[in-house]
Amino acid sequence: PLRRPHLLWLLVPFLLYVGALPFVNRVRPLILGLPLLFAWLLLATLLTPVAVWLAYRGDKRKRAS
């Protein structure tokens, strides 16, 4: 078994920025006026700290246990 499975959260930014690219490389639908590609990458930028924080939280819990 993986020693620190919570580190898999760190793959999320790659999935958001690279994995989703073929599906979001379009102008429409506009999201709050932003073209889809820009809106998606902005969302990815906002979600990256959350993904890294989930990895960090996993580390802290493992340390505490």
């Binding site: 820009f38 990815a44 990256t48």
Partner: peptide, 20 residues
């Protein structure tokens, strides 16, 4: 236009790699 967004993408992913 859009290709410039690679800067945001690699820096965000780089910080995730940097966590380890």
């Amino acid at each position: 236009g859009a290709p410039v967004l690679y800067v945001v993408a690699y820096m965000s992913c780089g910080y995730a790699v940097g966590y380890v």
